[in-house]
Design a protein around this nucleic acid. Structure first.
Length: 374
DNA sequence: TATTCGTGAATCACGGACTG
DNA sequence: CAGTCCGTGATTCACGAATA
């Protein structure tokens, strides 16, 4: 079982310390939810029988909903616990590579997200522990499914408004999407290839040598203005309007995604912020996902999650899986997380900070602001 | 060895309950 | 009223066991 007191920090890499994000100011709403959770636990001690089991089941499922979104889209809880246990057992100079660091960072974020996790799991019987993991996983997968189905209908709407493709993308059907559809293909196309070139289009569709689309290249839909500077591939990366719309649709409600009108342009950011904060007619809506899962920071992993969900929505794949043809979503998610968490040097770190600051300014919704964290 | 069958997990779509 | 959560049922898929 994992050790509560000392969560080892990642060693031997430049991965940004996630532990520094542990002390974050909580909203009133978040504090109230914590209090409710505490009271519920006390109730469980006083009561017994099926009702308690039922409530606990719902509690774990509800807690699990945050996991895929902000902890790890593909890594299992068991793997993260295993990595933490491994580090606790090892001493001295041990081998830590990027994938192990990523798992360990995930474990730390897991414990920041589910603050009860350490204590609860160390007291549990094996059967209850397995049951809890199962329910957490169930909650995690159902939230991911909800987000997938949400974007399945929303993304065609955004793309159809922006590009007015002929034929338009069917919000119900995914078979016509992916590289078969000109606009989806253009957005999914790796930046180093020119979708306007018919030879390139044919090559990608036939998966010919030199045109295989893998997780190794950043797709166009991630870039501001949907174009990349081949001499500076980081310019505009993770600043596309579609990405921000998807982020807002998932974390701050589908209606809030309509506010997005810019494309990485500074004036628009300010304009959006001004409108969001000063519009007296803006409706105060129900607590949204970011508040529910106590997410008060835009984190690299949430951006990676949205990037994967967005790519999936643009693709023709109908049910969730980690491989789409030659494209590996798991590695794609890893690449994005590593891009943010393992910047190669100080200059790269500064760029990441700037990028997250940009998200800070962009993701604003009524009286609730998401701030960026590194 | 190939096929069939049963089972459980994963996924999706849908609708009701609930909330602010 | 918009948005989220959650339960339910249908469907698909993978896998192992049984059978021809």
């Amino acid at each position: 079982m994992s050790q509560v007191e000392d969560i080892p920090q990642p060693k031997g890499s430049s991965r940004t310390s996630v532990a520094s994000s542990m002390a974050v100011p909580t909203s009133d709403n978040a504090r109230q939810r914590c209090k409710i959770a505490e009271l519920e636990e006390k109730l469980q001690v006083l009561e017994s029988g099926h009702a308690v089991k039922q409530r606990e089941t719902n509690y774990f499922m509800s807690q699990g909903r945050a996991l895929r979104r902000i902890v790890a889209l593909f890594d299992s809880i068991e793997d993260m616990i295993g990595e933490n246990d491994r580090r606790c057992d090892l001493e001295g100079d041990d081998d830590f590579d990027t994938s192990h660091d990523r798992l360990q960072s995930g474990y730390i974020i897991l414990n920041n997200t589910l603050t009860w996790f350490h204590k609860k799991t160390s007291d549990m019987e094996h059967g209850d522990y397995m049951h809890m993991l199962k329910k957490l996983r169930h909650g995690a997968d159902s939230a991911r499914g909800d987000d997938t189905s949400k974007l399945k209908a929303l993304v065609p709407d955004w793309v159809n408004r922006e590009w007015r493709p002929d034929p338009p993308i069917d919000p119900e059907d995914k078979h016509c999407r992916g590289f078969a559809h000109d606009t989806c293909g253009r957005l999914l196309c790796p930046t180093e290839l020119d979708w306007n070139d018919p030879i390139v289009r044919a090559g990608i569709r036939d998966r010919a040598d030199g045109y295989v689309v893998t997780k190794m290249s950043w797709p166009v839909f991630l870039y501001a203005g949907y174009t990349a500077d081949q001499n500076n591939l980081e310019e505009g990366l993770f600043k596309s309007k579609l990405l921000v719309q998807a982020f807002k649709a998932i974390f701050t409600s589908p209606s809030s995604a309509k506010d997005v009108s810019g494309d990485g342009d500074g004036a628009n950011i300010i304009e959006n912020h001004r409108r969001a904060t000063k519009d007296p007619l803006s409706k105060k809506v129900k607590t949204h996902v970011a508040q529910i899962i106590k997410m008060n920071k835009v984190s690299p992993r949430s951006i990676a999650y949205v990037s994967c969900q967005l790519r999936f929505a643009l693709s023709s794949v109908t049910s969730w899986r980690s491989i789409d043809g030659d494209f590996d979503y798991t590695q794609f998610w890893y690449n994005i997380v590593d891009f943010f968490e393992c910047p190669p040097g100080r200059a790269a770190q500064c760029n990441i900070d700037r990028l997250l600051t940009w998200w800070t300014r962009y993701i604003t919704f009524n009286n609730f602001n998401l701030t960026a964290v590194n």
